[in-house]
């Protein structure tokens, strides 16, 4: 039986560093395209899902 932490924010990707802070790793992107690309790559690596907070911040969450 394997145990896994779920509902955990694994990474935060944003263009505006002022919007974020705290415990999760933050990735700063220079454009929306780059932000989405980083989010895609990270979600594949981490097996997580990309969520959009609607204010230009993307999250990778493990479900």
């Amino acid at each position: 039986m394997k145990t896994e932490l779920t509902k955990l924010i694994l990474a935060v990707i944003t263009e505006n560093p002022q919007l974020v802070g705290g415990g999760a790793p933050v990735f700063i992107a220079s454009s929306r395209d780059e932000q989405e690309r980083i989010a895609l790559y990270l979600s594949r690596v981490l097996n997580g899902m990309v969520h959009d907070l609607g204010n230009g911040v993307l999250l990778i969450v493990n479900h």
Partner: peptide, 20 residues
């Protein structure tokens, strides 16, 4: 609705990537 996937008026999930 923005990033939120809806079936009629039921909230399903938040999808972050535009391509998805």
């Amino acid at each position: 609705q923005g990033p939120v996937l809806m079936v009629e008026d039921i909230f399903m999930m938040n999808v972050g990537l535009a391509a998805t």
